[in-house]
Design a protein around this nucleic acid. Structure first.
Lengths: 124, 124
DNA sequence: ATTTTGAGTTTACAAGTGTAAACTTTGGGT
DNA sequence: ACCCAAAGTTTACACTTGTAAACTCAAAAT
């Protein structure tokens, strides 16, 4: 029953930046993210919330604070992916991929190959 | 700039039921979903919200109301999938699948095949 | 020294969600 | 004809999210 704080959509954008630039200062974060149309305050709030969610740590080795992700992009992606798969595809990778494939233009043979590979993944 | 109401996680569970049982009555919905530990009221609220989001329609051909999904499972899945892909994988199907593959036990050859297929999907 | 400025903190506020009680109406049972 | 349970409606309330202003300090600029 762990409460597992989740990273919201906007917060995710901040994380993306921090994954690319660990130990960034706020000024840096602000510069980079204000392009998203966010105000100064908004960015500060997002960072603060990430810190309180323990997704980001503060490195206060003077004189400026630097922010560092505590969760790797990969682990976050996997977690999101699992949630998503369970929620939308009943946990079934093959259903997901089938759906993606049908949206594109694979022919039957290719789709079949794809599915057989997916099956090998053993993840359903 | 359409507001595009989204279907929340709990609401999704109701939709799943309605996709399987279109034109269900509330009693039916209640019976089926109370297993999730939801109270009567909760289920009614979820259905009501889905109606106001125009995801579900009411069929009031007496004597009981029947609820019918207005959005297909497939279109909802695709929409969710797109959101998810953009949010977490920058819209890249191949990154998603690579990630899934690395979590399972495909060997290099298989992974390569998988990727070439994914590339053919051109959705990356 | 005095002012400006940016970093960090506190407070705000509406919309959406999870969860549900309370109230109202009405068809079916007795 | 009268009551009850279930359907439908209103109200509630805390938490999260998106978005941001306001306030406090200390450092930098003049």
């Amino acid at each position: 029953m762990k409460k597992e704080k989740t990273i919201s959509e906007s917060e995710w954008v901040v994380m993306e930046y921090l994954w690319e630039n660990p130990l960034a200062t706020i000024t840096e974060i602000r510069k980079a993210l204000s392009a998203n149309g966010w105000s100064d305050s908004t960015i500060k709030t997002l960072v603060r919330r990430l810190v309180s969610k323990k997704a980001v740590a503060i490195n206060d080795e003077e004189p400026v604070f630097r922010y560092k992700p505590l969760l790797s992009k990969n682990e976050c992606r996997l977690k999101e992916t699992k949630n998503f798969l369970n929620r939308v595809y009943n946990g079934s990778v093959s259903m997901l991929v089938t759906n993606l494939a049908s949206e594109s233009n694979l022919n039957e043979k290719e789709t079949a190959e794809l599915l057989s590979l997916i099956e090998k993944m053993g993840k359903d």
